[in-house]
Amino acid sequence: MAQSSRCIDRRNSLGENRLPRNLRRLRPIFIAATSLAITFGFLVASQGAMAQNAATETKLAAEKSLGNSSAPIKLIVYDDYECPACGQFYEQTLRPLIDTYVAEGKVYLVHRDFPLTGHQYSRQAARWVNAAARIGKFEAVERALFDNQMAWSEYGSENPQGIMKPFVQAALAPAEFKRVEALMQGCESNDHDELKGCAVDPEIQRNIASGELLPISYTPTFIVSCKGTTYPPVSRGVAWPLLKQFFDQLLSQKQP
């Protein structure tokens, strides 16, 4: 009897007895429904975040990309503007690619910044290119910086002081350069850390974060996607004839 009363007391203390019998029966359903609602909430929130990421990604890709976004092949290149191998890859592989397969709508070329901290002026160069990309002048400024890499980078012998502004200016019309200069307010620094007042730094930071996820440790590194398949990353670049053969093979394959 005492045991029974203790038992009742405990149940009272838990508050279970306060629920009517019918509701008590429904308790598992309440728990399951609440769990489902919470899970659904998380899913909706994560979908929202994913959609937001995808929107950011699309925006990023559109600003620093060349060609038709619905091209069968997508080539993502992680570059550092000061890295000599990136300069070589750009001049010897990407230039012929841009002139042919990108122009013909076969390849959609996406650039992503991955300025290595070992290169003193690489972040600064990335800031200039991102500012130019904001006004739709990505290709001109990228080309200007790679074409004159030896003139401004620490590897060059001509004027290795990280002064890239004249090359950007030469690549743009005066009005365009003014707009780029305005975007570069608070960005003219060789600092590799994200600058608080720099409008283009968050984009660079997002590019670096996406590279670190792969993970990328060297530049250039590129990733090819075609017909819903993404191939493993390839580092250190590759000669244009080899890349062309690979693309031709991809283009000749039937849709899986």
């Binding site: 493993p232 590759v238 000669a239 991809l250």
Partner: peptide, 23 residues
């Protein structure tokens, strides 16, 4: 045959990244 060719092409790109062989 197509998948073989693609795999060997991809291997060729990886081989090229060693920067040891003439093109």
């Amino acid at each position: 045959p197509a998948s073989l060719e693609l795999s060997m092409m991809f291997f060729a790109m990886q081989l090229s990244s060693y920067q040891m062989l003439p093109a």
